[in-house]
Amino acid sequence: MSDLPLIQADRAVPPPAATTSTGGRRRRLRLLSRTDRVVVTLMVLVPLLIVTGFVWLPAAATVLLSGTNWDGIGPLNEIEFVGARNYSDVVNIYPPFVPAIQHNLLWLAVLFVVATPFGMFLAVLLDKELRGSRFYQTALYLPVVLSLALIGFVWQLLYSRDQGLINAVFGSNIDWYGDSNVNIWAVMVASGWRHVGYIMLLYLAGLKGVDPSLREAAAVDGASESRTFFRVVFPVLRPINIIVLVVTVIESLRAFDLVWVVNKGRNGLELISALVTQNVVGEASRIGFGSALATIMLVVSLVFITIYLATVMREDRQ
């Protein structure tokens, strides 16, 4: 949550000159008053407890439950351990699993290749101080603000086979939500619609922070607009680029709401997150099996999180 700004602010303090780093740190600690120390301790302890209690314990419990066949009925001490059976069932006899993995990857690819660059492109355009720039910003950012129920409804109006706007206008007969070859793309458009606005705003904020003198210097040197962007602005925006990248990865991994609204993640719209929900939440209560799916998802997420953290830490060290 607020750990990144803290690190950055820390960095902004000039390191004490001509002392070893350990010695410097010790002296700085001694400079803190008692109130400061209490505040610092609280600031570390409270988030630590929250993170442990609400993130790590449930995550560990999920991993533990994934080795059981608990169905939510009966006391906890009657839970039976079944080893890796849930995992072998997921891989071997659960037909939606493989499509779900494929769809998650496809989702990542489309957001990364199409939606994110398009959002960045829009940001660059809007950075040009066009007339009505605010209006465009609002219009493009609106999908991010709309509630999920509303978005599901809006797209249902467009995509419905018998009563939808698209088929009515073009006289076509495409089953946008029902045909499993088409519906993933239809939902992807809806999802991209939302993602573009998000990335645009994020990137626009970064662009506004670029020192104008850099651009002026490039212009004086005779660089064209696109050359200025790719050779000067883009490299300067490296931290923002990383954030955009991470946001894209996260958005594609946690993609859930739209497919859930459309058809509860079935028939061509399988996603890991939807499968977890189908199995665990609600009356189904296949808690062991669903936890196995959730654990798989956690492992996939960890891969990306590790890459991200490794990059950030390497940067910090430099």
Partner: peptide, 24 residues
């Protein structure tokens, strides 16, 4: 730039929370 960290980056936690919420 540090201020621009969007909630969904911090939301890495939310993801595993969702997974964990499964059990709890």
């Amino acid at each position: 730039l540090a201020r621009l960290v969007p909630p969904s980056v911090a939301g890495i936690n939310r993801r595993s929370l969702l997974a964990g919420a499964a059990g709890t």
